[in-house]
């Protein structure tokens, strides 16, 4: 078991985050090179260094097609992984992921309504999805809310039940919809980055940055809350306040991301687990590392999604689940799932 022998300090956080950022940048470079159309490494470097484009085609492919998609994939992976790490600690459950409070089913419900109403991918569907996500989270939090505060098991259960309810409604729409709309719906439900545009990333970036900043302020609270709520209270954590802030922050960023990308599963579940095994459980280190690792993971999953079955394309959710599940099982077997008692 990888246990950090040295307590986390700022220098270690900077070192690990720096290393992960470097890996991420290399990963982005690699992802930019791959695709149906050939763009050479030289051409890419020339383009990135801002030199005059020799060939208008390469310029368009890199800056108008691949880069927007990579950036949105990165932001989505970042948000979903951070959300997963936070929810696993707060709900003290290894299966918790950013969709647990109903972000996914709510967003999907909103999106499917939007698609059925004939709205476009431009603004209408994302707006519906975002509204659906936040409404569902609000409903789940209201159900889970008790006199003594929100209890983890109740919260989980409320999430599962609300998810089931909305999934049923979505299935109803899918079953009764016409052919061309069905394809749009399914792509959205499996998660899809092929429609990414730079304007979406420009909207998402400040929201994700603010959300992460807020969550990082609670990193130490999360360490203590993972020891149980009563223990955290005794050590001075205002548990209710911390939980509400974290729930709202995660719901906002994942809700927004989901509205652009559709439902991408497994990232938020698998990335924090892997990183916890490597760098230890302290959230001051784990949150930035999960974010950067999640970005790298999703960028590459999407690169595979768009290159594996050229010239056709897979929804990225298919890749994350297909890659994630076996790898996860391997890790669980190897480590014996040791840290979940």
């Amino acid at each position: 078991m990888a246990v950090s022998t040295k307590p986390v300090n700022l220098i270690r956080v900077i070192k690990v985050s720096g290393l992960m950022t470097l890996l991420l940048l290399l990963g982005i470079l690699g992802a930019l090179l791959l695709g149906t159309a050939e763009v050479g490494f030289r051409d890419l470097l020339d383009l990135l260094s801002g030199a005059e484009a020799k060939d208008q085609m390469s310029y368009l492919i890199i800056f108008k097609i691949r880069l927007p998609r990579i950036i949105l994939a990165g932001l989505a992976g970042f948000s979903l992984s951070v959300g997963g790490a936070v929810f696993q600690a707060i709900l003290r459950n290894p299966l918790a992921e950013p969709f647990i409070l109903g972000v996914s089913s709510g967003a999907a419900f909103g999106a499917v309504l939007g698609i059925t109403a004939g709205l476009g991918f431009g603004f209408g569907i994302p707006a519906c999805a975002f509204a659906g996500a936040l409404t569902t989270v609000a409903i789940v939090m209201m159900i889970a809310r008790r006199k003594m505060g929100m209890e983890s098991a109740t919260t989980l259960l409320a999430g599962v039940i609300v998810n089931a309810f909305f999934t049923a409604i979505i299935m109803f729409f899918v079953a009764t919809s016409t052919d061309d709309r069905l394809h749009t719906m399914l792509f959205w439900l499996y998660g899809d980055l092929s429609q990414s545009r730079m304007s979406e990333s420009l909207v998402a970036l400040p929201v994700v940055a603010t959300g992460f900043f807020l969550l990082y302020a609670f990193a130490r609270h999360l360490n203590l809350m993972a020891m149980g709520e009563e223990a955290a209270l005794h050590m001075g954590v205002d548990v209710e306040k911390a939980k509400i802030y974290c729930f709202v922050a995660v719901s906002l960023i994942t809700g927004l991301i989901v509205s652009f990308t559709g439902l991408i599963g497994f990232v938020g579940l698998i990335v924090p687990h892997i990183l916890r095994m490597i760098i230890g459980p302290d959230h001051r280190l784990l949150l930035p590392a999960s974010g950067l690792g999640g970005a790298l993971f999703l960028i590459w999953a999407d690169t595979l999604a768009r290159t594996l079955v050229q010239p056709s394309e897979l929804p990225v959710g298919v890749i994350t689940a297909a890659m994630g599940a076996p790898f996860f099982i391997y890790l669980l077997r190897k480590k014996g799932g040791g840290h979940w008692h």
Binding site: V8, A89, R92, M227, A231, H234, M235, H339, H341
Partner: peptide, 24 residues
């Protein structure tokens, strides 16, 4: 400060890290 009957440790924090949590 409170010493409970037992504590539930979800993650494999080191002893030093657990003790440092008391500094919260």
């Amino acid at each position: 400060a409170m010493v409970p009957q037992e504590n539930y440790f979800l993650f494999p924090f080191s002893v030093k890290e657990v003790v440092l949590m008391g500094r919260f």
